[in-house]
Design a protein around this nucleic acid. Structure first.
Lengths: 204, 204
DNA sequence: ACCTGAACACCGTTCAAGT
DNA sequence: ACCTGAACACCGTTCAAGT
């Protein structure tokens, strides 16, 4: 009956990310994913080798939005700032998957490779190779740290809590919007202080 | 036959942390934990309400080693540096549990409360309350980012890989020791640059 | 070629029952 | 008071079988 395939790797990835965004990382199971696609769990394994692999692919799609083009300007400070901001923005769009990225060698493979551009930009700006490596690592610290220890994270529960208790005054919306602003400003503070501090010890 | 209890909450916590250190976060199951304690899985629930709860308790024990006494000196720079270093050291001793801390509101409850001391120290040094909050958050970014995106993490597999392939030349040991040094130096670079950058915009 | 049904070896957690 | 056995409702993954 099914003329052409119901499933495809990309359809699976999209549905998986949707579930993660909605139900959290623990909320994704192969069975639920299959059900949402109108299919049996076993069918997924014709298009995806493993759940872990699927998550890596989903993560890779998100990390594609990281923009390292800022280093083409020749200004390493501008490069660092724009890369870090786009990186954080990409993660902030799908906060629930960030813990997975932190898990295994996920970030090393995809994003450290991308950070090779950063490395190159830094070296051609006069930093030593070792310094460049450490600066790139520091950038990851800030980006992943900000994505993970976000004030907004964990507010999904609080949001429900407040909504149930005080259905009229929409405190929840206030909380999240304040938290998001605080997250943003804290990241900007950390990033700017870091780059300023770096600039204090370099030629360029 | 068992005169007095075989199990206790603290014995369970110790065994759990040991398994996590050895087998990773995914390697901990209530059944394995019970077996290692010479007991049935169900027995654990007399002393521990839930696996998640157990992990929170284990985490709390680790975070007790964070030292915020550096703020008593009155020098906020010294306070930040010593707090960040002890924080990172505490996490680095048990890297496998860090992803859990990043998960839920785990870090907010225990460690943000501890960071109240940081907040107080910063405010009495002349920073505004909002700035103090953002600086404390930035500190967490660096500490958790460093603990998570560590170069050493994921080397456990590589280590096995190298050991199996080249059993004689112990490349693995070299890799991990280099990675550890790079982790340490990168964190110091990030931390010092951050504090230097902060100092560039403040009275004290 | 693509999907299904049923099974395997696991989970966390509960609860009546044993001592 | 403390632990056990058995069960419940889940997992990820495999594989012969159907179309």
């Amino acid at each position: 009956m099914p003329r052409n395939p119901i499933l495809s790797a990309s359809r699976i990835r999209t549905a998986a990310l949707h579930i993660i965004d909605r139900d959290g990382l623990d909320g994704l199971s192969m069975r639920k994913l299959a059900a949402e696609l109108g299919v049996q769990a076993a069918s997924l394994y014709g298009h995806v080798s493993t759940k872990d692999d699927l998550l890596h692919e989903v993560a890779a799609g998100i990390l594609e939005k990281v923009d390292v083009s800022g280093f083409e300007s020749g200004d390493w400070r501008q490069g660092l700032l724009s890369c870090a901001r786009s990186y954080r923005a990409a993660l902030a769009e799908h906060p629930n998957i960030v813990p997975f990225l932190a898990y295994g060698p996920a970030h090393r493979e995809a994003s450290l490779r991308r950070l090779d551009v950063v490395h190159g930009g830094l070296v051609s700006a006069g930093w030593s190779r070792r310094e460049a490596t450490m600066i790139a690592a520091s950038l990851l610290y800030l980006v992943f740290g900000a994505a993970l220890t976000s004030f907004s994270s964990g507010f999904s529960e609080d949001q429900a809590f407040y909504r149930d208790r005080y259905p009229n005054l929409d405190k929840a919306h206030l909380l999240t919007s304040v938290a998001r602003e605080l997250d943003h400003d804290s990241f900007e503070l950390a990033l700017n202080a870091f780059v300023t501090g770096l600039a204090a010890r370099v030629p360029g």
